[in-house]
Nucleic acid binder design. Structure first.
Lengths: 204, 204, 204, 204
DNA sequence: TATGAATGAGCCTTCATTCAT
DNA sequence: AATGAATGAAGGCTCATTCAT
């Protein structure tokens, strides 16, 4: 049987993961500039040094976080694509809403995008990840419109881009919904989506 | 006759304006946290102290900048509303494109929105300004759809919100267009706009 | 008749006096380091510039203040010396108590003494003024003991020195008396004084 | 066996002590306001940051210094109380003279007292320490008078207060004795002390 | 590997001082 | 003479990073 004690490698992996999870919360809450190494390591229950044992620098933590976070979102999105056609619209809406429900998530993405605008090195990595996401989203939309028997109103990639931008943009430009209040932004997005599909049908 | 030398009040007004202009560039380039008082004053050609002769604090500079910047955008938008109906669509598109052409503008707005999420005091002031903008935008859209004889696909305020969010979001999520390259994002927005109006007409 | 308007010279003298009075309050309240030129001039109802029109520098204001303040105390003390012998003890006690009643006065004297320890230039001026004060005090004591028919327990200058030091020291080392509460320090000083005179009488 | 190298805790304790020793010198020389963190850390041979690794803030350094310094004086005083009765007067005189010999000590105490007048938080801590000192001093005086068979001329606490105030006050109001010159103030204090005790005996 | 004391660059802010008005 | 905008040198403090333990 596996011993209760973790091996060295597992230990370190665990530390790394905890640090990244803490970094996600702290970067989201305080932004890149406002997040200090001290804050992050304390949030993870470690000392400053632990970060430097696992990452090159503060920026490296951020970069790795970008990879991990975007990867997670991608995985979720792939589940949506692979799901049942009848549940596509709902699952998509759900996926999009995450950003509105989870304020941390919004702030984190915004910080990533700002960083990409500022650091070319970071940009290269980040835009590649984002492009993958857009493509996956486009695939979802294609399946969705096909399932509805409605022609797409524009290039799928452009539409995917627009949907992602809209979701992010509308959430960012509104006050954080008070807990308990339903995120109003979701309603607008859904409404827009329906407009597309319904009016298209009407067209025929 | 007016003296060649500026009066003291004029002098100070000039300094203030130059500082704000510099602040706009620096905040946009480095973000709120990354913009230092030193950087801003140097960019304006003054010493650090000049800022504190004209503003209460760094945050006060940022707040004033928000007011001035949003005010400018509002004035432009009001010109669009007041313009000739036939040129409405073009003028609107133009107005929206500013954000894509001017990277500074984008970064600044993003910083404003982030700050609003972080500082309740700032939020209060900022969201009020933004709401005014949304309303003006809604008025433009109403005039536009009426001129085209097309019913609006949704509540004008929601649509205005969506258009603004989309413009901002799509620009932020794309790499900064290399100078010379046309901003690709504009194409998507225009395409979306046309989809709305054309399909609606088809509906009849 | 004298015109209501002051002459130039009178105007300036008035400004100077007001500035010094303000300086006294502000230096006392905030100490030399904590008193800013802005604070002083504002307290006097003028702008910063007024100070530099009337004094060389911040230190010059302090120096002049020392002269004016010590001069005032000397004048008061001379009134005590010149007064009626029977009222000598009371008047002296009164004079000493000023320091305990007026917290500002205490802080100011302390600041002067500290400055004298730090700046040799200042020291030269200050100790001369203080010596005059001590001599005057010694004269008062001599008259007092003679009036009481009691021999002085020690050299008059030494005793004067001791009394002044005691008054200052005991006030400084106690918490500021809450307004309304009688200054407790006065009691100790009077007690000490009586001890001297009474016990001396008993000696005979 | 103990390693030649200090353990980490010992290292830090050493740093802390050196910083405090440096702070004592610098605060004494320049006063609270004039002592900068830079100056203190440089005097100790460390960088600015070392102070913030060991103390909360500048005021915390000062407060800790007050504790350490007053503690040291208390310990010395307790040795005086516990000493042989016959040597009491001499030891006491010695203890009091420290303030006159050590200019730094004087300035430091004065700064402490000023700070207590300005900061209520500091006051609370400081006056408690001072009260302990006064009580110890009162105990010394009681033993002294008893050993001499002389009744105390007033309440022991009041007399202790007066002696401490006198010592401090007389030193502060005199020019710093040139090195080599005997501190003249000591003579006055001893003379005063003798007056008390001798005259009291005469009384009988 | 993880710790955390120490470093030192950099930040926001204050303030004595200057000088054109 | 008085004003107050602008200067520029500090000052207290934060924080990414290093390194001995």
């Amino acid at each position: 049987m596996r011993p209760a004690r973790l091996t060295r490698a597992e230990q370190q992996a665990q530390t790394r993961e905890r640090l990244l999870a803490a970094a996600e919360r702290v970067f989201a809450r305080h932004g890149y500039g406002g997040a200090s190494i001290d804050l992050i390591s304390a949030e993870a229950g470690y000392s400053k040094g632990a970060i430097y044992s696992n990452f090159e620098s503060k920026e490296a933590v951020f970069l790795e976080l970008a990879r991990v976070y975007m990867g997670r979102r991608m995985t979720e999105l792939e589940h949506v694509v692979g799901g049942e056609p009848s549940k596509l619209a709902g699952a998509l809406s759900q996926w999009l809403q995450t950003m509105q429900v989870d304020g941390d998530c919004l702030m984190l993405v915004t910080e990533l995008q700002l960083q990409a605008r500022r650091s070319p090195a970071f940009a290269e990595q980040y835009y590649a990840l984002q492009q993958k996401q857009t493509r996956a989203m486009a695939a979802v939309l294609e399946r969705l419109f096909k399932a509805l028997g409605v022609p797409m109103p524009m290039d799928p990639i452009d539409l995917a881009d627009a949907m992602l931008a809209l979701t992010h943009g509308i959430t960012l430009q509104r006050p954080e919904p008070k807990s308990g209040t339903p995120a109003d932004a979701g309603r607008v997005i859904d409404r827009l989506m329906k407009t597309f599909t319904r009016t298209q049908m009407a067209r025929k």
